[in-house]
Simulated assay, not measured.
Amino acid sequence: MSTDEGRKLTRVVQTCSAYPVQWDAWTADGQYLYLRYRHGEGCVEWHPGPDDDADTPESWNEGRSGLLIGWDDGTGGGVIGLGDFLAAAGLELAPDASVS
Rank of each mutant, 00 (worst) to 15 (best):
E5M: 09
Y34M: 08
L86D: 02
S100L: 07
G74Q: 14
A87E: 15
T3Y: 03
G30E: 11
F85A: 06
I69N: 07
A94T: 02
R7A: 09
E41F: 02
G74M: 15
Y19A: 13
D55G: 14
D29I: 05
D73S: 12
M1E: 05
E41W: 01
A88Q: 14
A88D: 08
V79F: 08
G76K: 13
D55L: 08
E92Q: 06
D73L: 09
G6V: 03
T56A: 13
T10S: 10
D96W: 04
D24V: 12
G90T: 06
T27D: 04
W26P: 14
D4E: 11
P50V: 08
M1G: 06
E58Y: 07
A87W: 07
D24H: 15
D52K: 05
D72A: 12
L33N: 00
R38P: 00
L91G: 00
V21F: 03
G83N: 15
E45S: 07
D73H: 10
D73N: 13
D72W: 11
Q31P: 07
R64T: 02
G90N: 10
L86Q: 05
L93W: 01
C16I: 01
E41Y: 01
L68P: 05
A97E: 09
L93R: 02
Y32P: 14
T27N: 05
V12L: 05
D4V: 11
R64H: 09
V12R: 00
G76Y: 06
A97V: 09
K8F: 05
H47N: 13
R11G: 07
E45H: 04
G6E: 03
T75M: 13
G63S: 07
T15P: 02
S2K: 07
A87R: 15
S59L: 12
N61V: 02
S98T: 15
F85K: 11
L67A: 06
L68K: 05
D96K: 03
